[in-house]
């Protein structure tokens, strides 16, 4: 198919026991874009991303990644995606280099591909000589860089990043954003990421979706949404969409 979508989510429902975390959401992610899922705590961002990453199965509805069903064709989907979990940490006693080379060996069978991926990973992580230190000596920012490098170096068709900058200071967060922006373009990787940082989404994403309590409230290009809601930035947009008025009390 020519204009095949990177991700197609249709009427997605996810229940945990009797609790409904996703109440039938639908959206698409276009090939090559950086798509942001924005939402407050507990909105269902992680749940959505885990379903796309084949970790959770939908209660109902369908999710397709480049035309492949995440349930019935999970094994095929896993070959073309990579996933960065929320709060991703690292193995303590192996070095960044060893970790990246393990991942290269898992994704690629031939030597040349493995070496290329490893080289790319080292370049993305940009840790200098520290790449040969055990990961327990890494700061949170360095650990995250290794994880992002790991996710991008295998040149997935779709990278799923759950709050890639959470818990990092402004400088580290900026570096991660730069990595994502630069390498997704250079390597032609489609990215879907989640965040509750409105500035981050504004800076990084082509299109965004606003999720709240398992419901998709709004979706569209950042500029288009800003002008439609007559607001200056995504933060104001976010407040308006989830119904949070300026006096500080929720109208929900």
């Amino acid at each position: 198919m020519m204009n095949q979508r990177a991700v197609e989510v249709k009427k997605l429902v996810k229940k945990y026991g009797s609790f409904v975390a996703l109440k039938g959401i639908s959206f698409d992610v276009e090939k090559g874009e950086i798509f942001g899922l924005l939402g407050p705590n507990g909105a269902g961002k992680t749940t959505t991303l885990r379903i796309i990453a084949t970790l959770l199965t939908p209660t109902s509805g369908t999710v397709k990644v480049f035309g492949l069903d995440v349930v019935s064709e999970a094994n095929k989907v896993r070959k073309i995606i990579s996933y960065l979990p929320e709060e991703a940490g690292a193995y303590k006693n192996i070095t960044g280099f060893e970790y990246l080379s393990m991942v290269a060996k898992i994704y690629f069978s031939n030597r040349k591909d493995q070496e290329e991926a490893l080289e790319l990973g080292i370049k993305i992580a940009n840790l200098g000589d520290k790449i040969h230190d055990k990961m327990k000596t890494y700061s949170k920012g360095m650990q995250r860089r290794i994880q992002v490098a790991r996710a991008l170096m295998v040149r997935p068709r779709l990278a799923i990043l759950d709050e890639p900058t959470s818990g990092l200071d402004v400088v580290q967060a900026m570096e991660i954003r730069n990595i994502v922006k630069r390498f997704s373009r250079e390597l032609g990787i489609t990215v879907i990421l989640s965040s509750h940082n409105t500035r981050e989404v504004e800076e990084l994403c082509d299109r965004i979706a606003i999720l709240d309590q398992g419901v998709l409230k709004e979706i569209g290009y950042v500029d288009e949404l800003l002008s439609r809601y007559e607001v200056k930035n995504v933060e104001e947009l976010f407040m308006k969409v989830i119904g949070f008025d300026q006096t500080g009390s929720s109208t929900r």
């Binding site: 885990r50 990453a53 084949t54 970790l55 094994n75 896993r78 070959k79 995606i81 990579s82 996933y83 960065l84 979990p85 929320e86 709060e87 991703a88 940490g89 690292a90 193995y91 303590k92 991942v103 898992i106 994704y107 994880q147 790991r150």
Partner: peptide
Amino acid sequence: ALENEVRTLETLLTFPI
């Protein structure tokens, strides 16, 4: 349990293995 704690199990489960 450590794989769970530092979320590396989640990553392992998305690997093509």
